[in-house]
């Protein structure tokens, strides 16, 4: 029983990170129908930038993080939207998705060319200790990760529901045409969603890299898990991405300990297949109307 609790808590920590990446993913899908295959690399690149700041420029982690966050927001948020999404969006979903696959190749191999294929250690942003409460051992790092993601989700929620800009962003996501009619500057708000996505990915990078170590293919499995989390929870719902991420994280961890560690990475796939067979709109999703 105590062991199950421990495994669940560390699964929640992993799941919280999946959820953060998945939320950005659903944001892009909602506003521009972009399926961003490079989402995992959007986590890898800020991790690489942070490591560069720490190793080359000898910066403290906090400063490196802020720097990486800003560069990410500019490069993977604004520039990504202007240079790749804007010119391609009129071609439809498929070329855009393929372009993000091309971007994945370029980013991953660029970092590999610069920094090699080895795994590099990455400093922990929070202390790592084992806490014992009533015989259950927790890692302080897992708790800190869960708390950080909760704080980010809370802040994002306040921003989306409590501010004019945030509410306009939701309007754009729900119905772009109506948003234009209401006088919302749709283009600018879509840009914001890209910046928010890049920022979420950078925050995920800070939390996940110390655990996975830095490597050029860091984003590969992370991006995939985020997709699954988003679809399991409901592709058109931010809440769905959050729930989907947590479910995937916990079940993955439980199956690694109690079932088959070698097939841990297949858990998300299994859930995904079940969801699209029995509830294609996702656990919390709404059905999307098809446009002729």
């Amino acid at each position: 029983m105590q062991e199950i609790l421990q495994v669940t808590i560390s699964g929640l920590a992993t799941g919280a990170i999946y959820a953060m990446v998945a939320m950005g993913f659903t944001l892009l899908w909602q506003t521009t129908s972009t399926i961003n295959f490079a989402q995992g690399e959007f986590v890898m690149l800020p991790a690489f930038l942070m490591l560069g700041g720490i190793v080359v420029l000898d910066l403290p982690l906090a400063v490196a993080f802020v720097g990486a966050l800003l560069i990410s927001a500019a490069l993977l948020g604004a520039a990504f939207k202007r240079a790749i999404i804007d010119p391609m969006i009129r071609h439809g979903v498929l070329p855009l998705a393929i372009a993000t696959i091309g971007l994945t190749l370029a980013l991953k191999n660029g970092v590999k060319a610069i920094y090699g294929a080895e795994a590099h250690p990455f400093p922990h942003p929070f202390p790592v200790e084992i806490w014992r409460v009533l015989g259950v051992a927790f890692s302080s790092y897992d708790i800190a990760v869960i708390a950080s993601v909760a704080a980010v989700v809370f802040a994002l929620n306040r921003f989306l529901n409590g501010t004019m800009t945030g509410r306009s962003m939701q309007a754009v996501a729900q119905n772009p045409e109506a948003a234009v009619v209401l006088g919302i500057d749709v283009k600018r708000l879509i840009l914001y969603t890209f910046v928010v996505n890049a920022a979420l990915a950078a925050a995920a990078a800070l939390l996940v890299t110390p655990v996975y170590l830095f490597k050029f293919d860091l984003g590969e499995s992370l991006g995939l898990k985020a997709f699954y989390a988003a679809i399991i929870g409901g592709f058109n719902q931010m809440r769905g991405a959050l729930v989907g991420g947590l479910i995937v994280g916990v079940l993955e961890n439980l199956s690694a300990v109690y079932f088959a560690p070698a097939y841990k990475d297949a858990v998300a796939l299994g859930l995904f297949v079940l969801v699209i067979l029995f509830r294609p709109e996702g656990l919390l999703g709404r059905e999307e109307a098809r446009r002729v």
């Binding site: 391609m88 855009l96 372009a99 696959i101 091309g102 994945t104 190749l105 370029a106 991953k108 060319a113």
Partner: peptide
């Protein structure tokens, strides 16, 4: 760098 160039080529082709 070949794969980097290849990736950029794919993006450009799609655009």
């Amino acid at each position: 760098w070949y794969l980097v160039i290849f990736g950029i080529f794919v993006v450009a082709l799609m655009a």
